[in-house]
Nucleic acid binder design. Structure first.
Lengths: 215, 215
DNA sequence: CTTGTTTTTATACGACCGTATAGTTTGCGC
DNA sequence: GCGCAAACTATACGGTCGTATAAAAACAAG
């Protein structure tokens, strides 16, 4: 056929994931990535059309396997609360594993950066719909109080996953005041046991009337 | 003496505060600011030496009045817990007032931007020391449990002020999933009453043995 | 009117960025 | 060997950015 590939595309995706983790999508630099990977600048747009497409592809590579496992967890079993618990464990484990990258992306998103926003909006983020569906199932089975499932979603996410992102950001940020960083030093926040405790507590809390969510 | 000033420096600081609020410090553009203000680009570096100096000056202008009121509140009264409560109210009111700007700066800070980080580190942020001092006072008076005051600081801040920043970011972000935004629509999060409730609850919670801070 | 000082303007420099494009290398089937 | 196509290289374009600098404008004092 033609000249055999040196698989520079694979090298770029591998180093690109590291680069995205370190720099976030806002300060992501194509030229810097190519230099890190020892790859000619032209190869970037040869293999991937644009910076946005590259980042979007990276995110899909990271997101899709989790989503497959999430659907598996959400579909197996009878008890709706247990199905939700399984799904939350899958998602929480994924957030824990990729917390450095995800927290950086979250910071970018909140700062108004657009590459991540595009990925989130272009229907590639589908786990929320699955979660809401499970919550609705719980409500129909009278296991959860009635009301807007989004509010329950926010409650669960805030109690279980948000601490992972905020904690990671704070931990990795040298500019934050020392007392805030000191609390995160031991790292028990990121263990699977602690995650399960938070999930269990959140679900247990929901079988009671949903508290007023003031914060 | 010489050519009379048109006070373009004042115009720049006024429009600059708006620009900083809208764009954050990471995407702050000197050229764009000058265009918005209808001021020649050269005037920016004539009045203010650099972009970093300009932003730092803006932050001081916003921070210093609050710090003065904070010291006043922290110094008047006898009961250490009440002094702390007053100081927290001052700080919380200030965070509420400037929540749009502050939340954007927080996002920048977590994203690794350096202008805000410089301001925080160059000893211009002194309220934390005052707060820690008041906490120590409470501990010496046996009103608070012993232990690292930083941990108590984080607990209070997380329960009272962090929700303001996170809520503002989520509220202003069109890219976030709808269910998350819907919860923040009513705006009761930002009332003075809600702030006082959170402060009171946090302080009340501290007079009991400090709970394990897992999240 | 001239001199001097301050404010204001216009323009240029150098750096970085994402992207485009023309050209070169390299191996295949013929 | 030859042509072809895919992989790879080198370089350039156009843009934004913060900053620097030289010149002009505007007023007061002499």
């Amino acid at each position: 056929m033609a000249r055999p590939s040196q698989n520079l595309d694979q090298r770029l995706t591998r180093v690109g994931r590291r680069h995205l983790t370190r720099r976030g999508s806002a300060r992501f630099s194509v030229r810097e990535l190519c230099a890190e990977a020892g790859v000619n600048l032209g190869m970037f747009h040869y293999h991937f059309r644009s910076k946005a497409a590259f980042i979007s592809g990276l995110l899909e590579e990271i997101y899709n396997p989790m989503f497959a496992r999430l659907n598996l967890a959400a579909g197996s079993g009878q008890d709706p609360v247990e199905k939700l618990r399984s799904a939350l464990r899958v998602f929480g484990g994924w957030v824990t594993e990729h917390r450095v990258l995800l927290s950086r992306l979250a910071a970018d998103l909140l700062g108004g950066e657009s590459n991540v926003a595009a990925f989130i909006r272009t229907a590639e983020v589908r786990h929320i719909a699955v979660m809401v569906g499970l919550i609705l199932e719980c409500q129909r089975a009278d296991r959860f109080p009635p009301g807007h499932p989004g509010e329950i979603m926010v409650f669960i996410g805030g109690a279980t996953f948000l601490p992972l992102l905020v904690g990671t950001l704070a931990q990795n940020n040298k500019h934050l005041p020392a007392p805030i960083r000191a609390v995160l030093k031991d790292g028990t926040l990121f263990t699977e046991a602690a995650l399960s405790r938070r999930i269990d507590a959140a679900l247990r809390g929901l079988t009671l009337p949903l508290p007023k969510l003031r914060a």
